[in-house]
């Protein structure tokens, strides 16, 4: 799904995901790209089609030469995810649980090693607001159930999540804001399943803290030929430092 593909001289290359299809075709000394929001059959496959659907809005990108190879490179979205648990996750006092959540994934379109388009949405996108109506953060909504096994649909990323309740009270987790900056994406080049780095959420009296553990997922979860499809944009230390500076600025009123 993520490997390089030869751009056909006639016909259209189509990457099919659960809720989106990305079309690409050669056009003289450039390429034409279109996205189809309707869910098509054959999700999780790449194929060359003779006739692309009518009514698509094509974008032409000039390269100055005949394009040869194209690939979609998975990308963790720039915007944070707001995971909306459905149903809400309930945790008894001083207990922990582990499972999987699902979040939207993006991809960069790379033609002959040249990144042409950034952050193509691979599934239907919905934004959500995390915070108060006066002040907060715009996130990508990730309506997700808390499941026992990774169930990422093509176009989504499955994230292993461990939740711990350190308080003496019962906790109901309905939404969780996850910064994707420090999350890497793993999977097989030829498979649609994309797994993210492990997330650890701790609910304590001081508040809720989410941390990321970067590392190769266990082979039984992601398959034997798992590679890092997208490296985290920021490591945990950098993220901590950046957040500390932001906090300091807020406190100092700078």
């Amino acid at each position: 799904m993520w490997e390089e593909r030869a751009i056909p001289e006639r016909g259209t290359l189509a990457w099919r995901f659960s809720e989106r299809t990305v079309f690409l075709r050669a056009s003289g000394s450039g390429v034409e790209v279109a996205e189809d929001a309707s869910a098509g059959a054959g999700a999780g496959t790449v194929a060359v089609t003779r006739a692309s659907p009518a009514g698509l809005s094509w974008r032409r990108i000039a390269l100055g030469r005949k394009p040869e190879l194209a690939r979609l490179s998975p990308r963790v979205p720039e915007k944070p995810w707001l995971v909306l648990f459905s149903p809400a996750l309930e945790l008894a006092p001083r207990t922990a649980t582990a499972g999987w959540i699902r979040a939207p994934l993006s991809a960069d379109l790379v033609v002959d090693g040249l990144p042409l388009l950034r952050e193509l949405g691979l599934c239907a996108r919905k934004t959500a607001w995390f915070g108060s109506p006066q002040n907060g953060l715009l996130c990508l909504a990730a309506g997700s159930a808390f499941t026992e096994s990774p169930s990422a649909a093509p176009g989504a990323i499955a994230l292993p999540l461990a939740v711990r309740n350190d308080t003496a009270e019962r906790v109901e987790l309905a939404r969780l804001c996850v910064y994707g900056d420090s999350v890497g994406a793993w999977g097989r080049e030829d498979g649609p399943l994309v797994i993210g780095d492990s997330l650890e959420c701790t609910v304590s009296d001081a508040g809720t803290r989410v941390s990321t553990r970067h590392g190769r997922p266990r082979p039984e979860l992601a398959g034997p030929d798992t590679v890092e499809l997208a490296a985290p944009r920021q490591n945990a230390q950098d993220r901590f430092f950046a957040r500390s500076v932001e906090l300091l600025k807020v406190i100092a009123g700078m």
Partner: peptide, 11 residues
Amino acid sequence: AAASPWVLAEP
């Protein structure tokens, strides 16, 4: 509201 790309899922 859920189908609209403009409407926020939360609140």
